[in-house]
Amino acid sequence: MQLELKNVSYTYGKGTVFEVNALSNIDLAIEEGQFIGIIGHTGSGKSTLIQHFNALMEPTEGKVLFEGEDIWGEKYDRRALRSKVGLVFQYPEHQLFETDVLTDVAFGPKNQGLSKEEAEARAREALVQVGFPEKFYGHSPFELSGGQKRRVAIAGVLAMNPKVLILDEPTAGLDPKGRDEILDQISYLHDQRGITIILVSHSMEDVARYADRLIVVNDGRIPYDGTPREVFAHYKELEKIGLAAPQITYIMHDLAAKGLPVDVQATTIEEAKKSILEALAGKGAKR
């Protein structure tokens, strides 16, 4: 098992009157190579959860294991861990600071102790992987467009060669095409490099399309954990906790209710299209 949380709880302001439980007794195991979607409304505890994955936060109770080792063990190298478990925060372009794109992306690898040349080689590789055009490598990151800045920032984490890549709403504020481009790039990384992806998103449509496992966070707990089809089958319960299913799910349920024998668990447009066409053809044949 690559990443494991064992009975993890996190309490803000422990021991004061302001005690707030952000996470309660979380048990979670993440296998190498999974594409995981994390959904939950604002304040559900999902940000706290992902910061436990790379030791930015220490659980007040329980254990976090990476490749079987306790990351809060006495001699554990947590800085090294952070390059293995990369975390891209929301609006990551706010962390850019260098005078040119290449140097900024090389910041992570340099911190890992690589030489300037090695670090830059890694940076180039990462920039290619996020689809950033080479002619801008020497530009100041502050002059780029929003979408390009975002790519540079993601490359900055990717250049550390992480085995797990966590992204907190990587598409926030981007236009539809920009959203698709970033998500396709992430999905490509997952397929080509076999990186474990953990994607935090507010878009049910996006997680349904890309993730093979969905984790729902609510009130510091994980009420649902399964494939998108399984999780979205609970769409009524999801609504109660401020979430929803993709629009497609609702359409399929409506159609089924009207007597069209479609697959109600379809969550993407492709699945829905296929199922509706089959159902309509079946109906036609009977006539």
Partner: peptide, 27 residues
């Protein structure tokens, strides 16, 4: 938030002598 983001990129805000610490603050 920025501090955490840079720590996630391996930045070190705690060790080193004074000059090193100051330059480490640039990110």
């Amino acid at each position: 938030k920025i501090m955490k983001a840079q720590i996630a990129r391996g930045a070190d805000f705690e060790s080193g002598n004074l000059i090193k610490r100051v330059t480490n603050m640039i990110p």
